[in-house]
Amino acid sequence: MRRAAGIALWAAFLAPVALLLGWSFAWRWPWPAPLPERWQASAWTGLAATGGLGAAALRSLGIAGAVALVATSLGFVTSRSAVEARSGVALRWLLHLPFALSPVVLGVGLEYSFLRAGLAGHMVGVALAQGILAYAYAVILFCGLWNARTRAYLDGAATLGATPRQAWIRVLLPIARPLVVLCLVQTFLISWFDYALVLLIGEGRVATLTTSLYQFLLAGDLRLAAASGLILLLPPVIALAVRAQRRPPTFAGEWDL
C-alpha cells in the first residue's frame, strides 16, 4: 500500500515535468489534441544554436555560482557573531526581513543606488542584490551550527593545544561540512530561481534563464519556454538526486537561530 502511494505521488509530481518535456519536443500541438501531432527536437537544437540562450544559461550559472560561494563563505565566518549578539530578536527579524519582503520591493529600493554606483544593468549588481538574500539565508542556516556540542568540540581542541586556526580547519570544518554543502546548494538556488532582482537591477540588460523563459512565454513560443523551464529544473533536480545518495543534516538547524 505504501509502495502504491509512493508511486502515485511520484506520478502526480512528475506529470508537470512530463508536460514540459512534451511541449519541448512538440513539432505542432494544436487544440484540442491531447498529444502533439508530431515530435521533433528543434526546440532543443534551436536552444543550442541560439547563442543568446546559451549565454543566458552560462550567465545564470556564473551569477548563481558566485552568489553561492561568497554568501556561504561569509555566512559561515560571521554566523557565530550573530548567535552571540545581544540583540538576538532584532537580528533574527533583520535576517528574515529580506525573505518576508517581496524581492520586487528590495529591487526597487536598491535600483537607484546601484545605478549611481554603476552596478545596475550589470551581472555584478545582480549578484550583489541576490547576495543580500543569500547571505541572510546562510547566516540563518549556520546559526544552527553553533550549538553546545560544537562549542564543546572547539573548547576540547583548544584545551588539547590546537590554535584557533587549527580548530577551525580540523574540527569545525569537518563538523560543518554537510551544512556547508546544503548552504552552497540553497544559496545557488536562491540566485538561480530569481527573476525580480534580475529584472529590476539588471534593467533588461542582464539576460538569465528566468528572463529568457518569460520572453519566450510573452512571444508565445511555448516550446522554447518549456525547454528553458526544463533547464531551470536541472540544478535543483541534480541536488535532490545527490540528496538521495547522501542524507543532509536535519532540518532543525536550518530553522533555528
Binding site: 512565454l217 519556454a225 531551470l232
Partner: peptide, 14 residues
C-alpha cells in the same frame, strides 16, 4: 525544486 517562474509556466500549460 521548482522555480516560481517554471511553476507559473506549468500552470499555464495545465
Amino acid at each position: 525544486a521548482v522555480p516560481p517562474m517554471v511553476a507559473g509556466l506549468t500552470a499555464v500549460l495545465w
